[in-house]
């Protein structure tokens, strides 16, 4: 499943990194601890987090993640958005809590 395919189904907004919407999703990882993501997330995963600073994109890029979903309508910092566009790794935004969006994404990926 591609990143573009989950946007409508999960009611996400594309904040940045539109050029990366064709990225293939291998799964997802949920964490707000950056070293946890650095150590344990895997290539192609969607990262669900409440962190909005630009180090999120540094990690997403280093780990070759498919996209980042920010929860609860949190707004990405300007330099986070810039980094997302440069790296072509999308930042998506959800109005839902981490638990709710993770549950929906899990169901969607398990269903495919």
């Amino acid at each position: 499943m591609k990143v573009s395919e989950i946007i409508d189904q999960l009611g996400l907004k594309v904040i940045a990194g539109e050029k990366g919407l064709d990225r293939e999703i291998s799964g997802a990882y949920v964490s707000d601890l950056l070293s946890d993501v650095m150590g344990n997330a895997r290539e192609g995963q969607i990262w669900i987090t409440l962190q909005v600073h630009q180090n999120v994109m540094a990690i997403a890029s280093l780990k070759d993640l498919a996209a980042v979903i920010l929860v609860k309508d949190l707004e990405a910092n300007a330099n986070t958005i810039q980094h997302s566009n440069e790296e072509q790794i999308p930042i998506l935004s959800s109005s839902l809590s981490t638990f709710d969006i993770a549950g929906k994404l899990h169901a969607l990926l398990a269903d495919k």
């Binding site: 950056l34 070293s35 600073h53």
Partner: peptide, 16 residues
């Protein structure tokens, strides 16, 4: 608060 400083950095380095 930025999500660093969880005491995982050096263990991550050791593991990798």
């Amino acid at each position: 608060e930025m999500g660093f400083g969880a005491g995982m950095g050096l263990p991550n380095i050791k593991k990798n």
